[in-house]
Nucleic acid binder design. Structure first.
Length: 118
RNA sequence: AAAGCAGACCGCCUUAUCGCUGGUCAGUUGUGACUGGAGGAAAGUCCGAACACCAUAGUGCAGCAUAGUGGCUAACGGCCACCGAUCGUGAGGUCAGGAAAAGUGCAACAGAAAGUAUGUACAGGUUAUGCUGUAGUGAAACCAGGUAAACUCUAUGCGGUGCAAUGCCAUGUAAACCGGUGUUUGAGUGCGGCACGCACAAAUCGGAGGGUAGGCAGCUAAAGGGGCAUGGUAACAUGACUCUCAGAUAAAUGAUAAGGGUUUCAAGCAAUUGAAAUACAGAAUUCGGCUUAUAGGUCUGCUUUUUUA
RNA sequence: UGGCCUAUGGUGUAACUGGCAACACGUCUGAUUUUGGUUCAGAAGAGUCUAGGUUCGAGCCCUAGUAGGCCAA
């Protein structure tokens, strides 16, 4: 069963996520998450680290691609649903392999955590 | 052939698999099918407009902008043509290019003297002085001087605020608290310089605090694109024909794989092989310009020099 | 989206109306001290964010850009 990619949009809930959410780290990525009714995701890149819009857009696309690949595994796993935000904190342009590696690591962690809390 | 000048244009392509997003259709409300989906600068926000609201935007002052002449344009600080100045052998480039006889100011050092001036030396001239010429300083030295990207004057133009405008729907709280002003003797508002005027006007301004921060319209068919014809030196205008070409909102336009272009370097007589590179950069109300960034490449017209015929 | 401001030695600031870019701290050298600090003496270190223009002459005036910061909703 395939599920559509849930997007995290509300400003209020994003702020709550950054204030109270749990942080997972795996260079060059950060992942904030907390529990919610549905699986939701968002991505972000700081304007400080990457000046040009082209670079930021590309990184965000790579991150979104990584989320997409793991989406089925996450949502179909039976764990408690989470809203999470993926942040890129590296300073240089990443390759797609780096992103996939790091994100896979993070998502496996997230899955373990979400199951614990069931 | 080399070097150069001006203008116009392109700015990676193809296939497969997996996605994102707008629209249409179907639908068993899981989704499926078809079909659109970044740029010449989308950028900087430097000008000009459209559109919206406030008097269908009024008067004066202040302030700001522009500055040869004529034209183009919805408009412009843009573009075109011509004149002038200046740089270049030349094709061509550059120019805030109005007024110093309205007034005020400024000019370090040097120099006798820098604007209420008239010094020294030599020569000319004269009875003599005044006078005329030359010299030296300096960016500028007597002429009703220079300087207006100094104030200023003249001419022309400019109301303000912006799509987070504006209208509607939904959700929600506090019509409470403190202080000021005021009700035909007019507070305050009409957004942001001041005064007047006009309109509305019984409540309103400030403080601290509480609440919401979702959706729809605006929102993509337009001063629109394309080649053709006619007029005009040109910018541009007119005509018929033809095409429909992004609309997101924590913000779509992507990822992976394979193959092929193009350029550079290396090896090689050559076919070819290997390696590297493949720019600047990402729509956010919409147009017209300007400015800045840009690997590499194409085309057109012209200039100079050398050689050959 | 719209608007505003700033840029000067390594650091923080000056330079009035255009006329030799100044000061403090820091750095370096020497003296004093057993040594270090303090103190004293001396020296180096910039051409004013970048590119044009106006002017005899530009940190200052004008134009365009770059970088950083701030404000409104």
């Amino acid at each position: 069963m395939r599920q559509k990619l849930g997007r995290l949009k509300s400003e209020k809930r994003i702020n709550a996520l950054f204030n109270k959410g749990v942080v997972l780290k795996q260079f060059p990525l950060l992942l904030f998450y907390n529990h919610s009714a549905e699986w939701e995701s968002g991505v972000s890149v700081s304007k400080r680290l990457f000046k040009r819009a082209v670079d930021r857009n590309r990184i965000k696309r790579l991150l979104r691609e990584a989320v997409r690949k793991q989406w089925q595994g996450l949502s179909g796993d039976g764990g408690m649903p989470c809203a999470f935000m993926l942040l890129f904190v590296g300073r240089s342009m990443p390759s797609s392999e780096e992103i996939t590696k790091a994100s896979n690591h993070l998502f496996s962690k997230l899955m373990i955590n979400s199951k614990k809390n069931v």
